[in-house]
Amino acid sequence: MTTPAPTTADVTRLEIDGLPGTADTLRARALDGFGHFTAMQVRGGKVRGLGLHLDRLDAANRELFDQGLDGDRVRELIRHALAGDGSGDGDQEGGSATGSAESTTGLIGDASVRVYVHAPGGTPSLMVTVRAPTELPVTMADRAQALKSVPYVRPVAHIKHLGGFGQAYHGREARRAGYDEALLTGHDGLISEGAITNVAFFDGRELVWPDAPHLAGITMRLLRAGLADAGLPTRLAPVRLRDLPSYRAALVMNSWGVSPVSRVDDLDLPLDEKLMGTVAEVYEAAPWDVI
């Protein structure tokens, strides 16, 4: 699989606090790299783990700007951007998770949505961008990703912040070298996460999440909540590059979904169909929340 760069799709709509972006409001954001965001896939006006996205934004806002972020306000602004015609406050309870991309009223049901938060003058300001939805290949074999390890750990890794140059650089270099994703590592080859993914390793009995600085992604959190009930225990433990030959399989995940890992550097990893079937089943069972 060739993983698309995370910003390849053109922005369909962009709003700042419910209004179209202007030269002044966009200039302020271009000159201010201090902020945070969340990224989600919308289907039929719904999102998996919406509450987790709202919690992420609120927690990051409290840490960076010393104030909470109203989840209802976030939802309102996302709905407004998806509506695109001022009718974003309408009730979407009847929407399905596989609705059409855009209706005759201008409502975009399926999309990649990002919510960026800055605080000019100390007041949180939200920018919502809408792009075309990202769909992974149907079969796990076609999704399989090759990872290139790089010596880099994101600063303040537990926050999805705007300082993404390092991971973007390493992700680009990995793709230029024929890989799909960069695998971020620290001292002594300690694995933390992918450039835009979380990663996990299967030892034949348990799924192991690397115990190192990382962002606890929404898909990762949904899986951790459901895998034990599906009969697949998980644990947090240090994983180093030199340990990888002892693992039977690996996978990566983000808002796009879950994918198997076919290779890390020169180490080939087999596709474990049973493992990926269990993980995919748990992920697909996660409920869709109305925005």
Rank of each mutant, 00 (worst) to 15 (best):
G94E: 15
G226P: 10
D180E: 00
R13C: 09
N61C: 13
I16D: 00
V290Y: 05
D24M: 13
V156C: 11
A111H: 05
H118D: 05
G166Q: 06
A81N: 00
V264M: 00
P245C: 10
R43K: 08
R221C: 05
V258S: 11
S87G: 14
V264S: 05
W256G: 12
T129C: 09
R27D: 13
G51I: 10
V153G: 08
I218G: 07
A168R: 09
Q67F: 01
E135Y: 14
G45L: 07
G194Y: 00
P20L: 03
M253Y: 10
G217W: 00
G164K: 10
A280W: 08
D265E: 06
P6I: 12
L227A: 11
A60I: 03
S259N: 02
R131P: 11
R172I: 14
H80I: 11
V115R: 06
V252I: 15
G257S: 02
G163C: 06
E273I: 08
V279Q: 12
N254V: 08
G21C: 04
G277Q: 06
Q92T: 15
R75A: 01
R235V: 14
Q92E: 15
G44V: 06
L184G: 03
R205P: 08
G18V: 09
R56Q: 03
P20M: 08
L183V: 05
I218P: 05
Y179A: 05
V115A: 01
A157N: 04
K274Y: 12
G49R: 04
F65V: 09
L236M: 15
M1S: 12
H80V: 13
L26C: 08
A59T: 06
L215I: 09
D17S: 04
V208D: 01
G166C: 07
T22I: 09
A249F: 11
P213F: 05
G68K: 01
K160N: 00
G164F: 02
D110K: 09
A28F: 02
P245V: 02
S149V: 12
G189K: 00
D89F: 14
D17K: 04
G194L: 06
A168T: 11
P6N: 12
G122H: 01
L269C: 02
A97N: 10
G226A: 11
L136C: 02
L236Q: 14
V279R: 08
A5R: 13
D10A: 14
I196L: 09
D272T: 07
G122W: 06
D55F: 03
T98V: 15
G166R: 07
E273A: 14
G44F: 01
A286D: 06
D66R: 15
Y179W: 03
I108E: 04
R75P: 06
E281M: 12
A101V: 15
V261D: 03
V239N: 03
T3L: 10
G164C: 14
H170L: 07
Y283W: 14
E273G: 07
S259K: 02
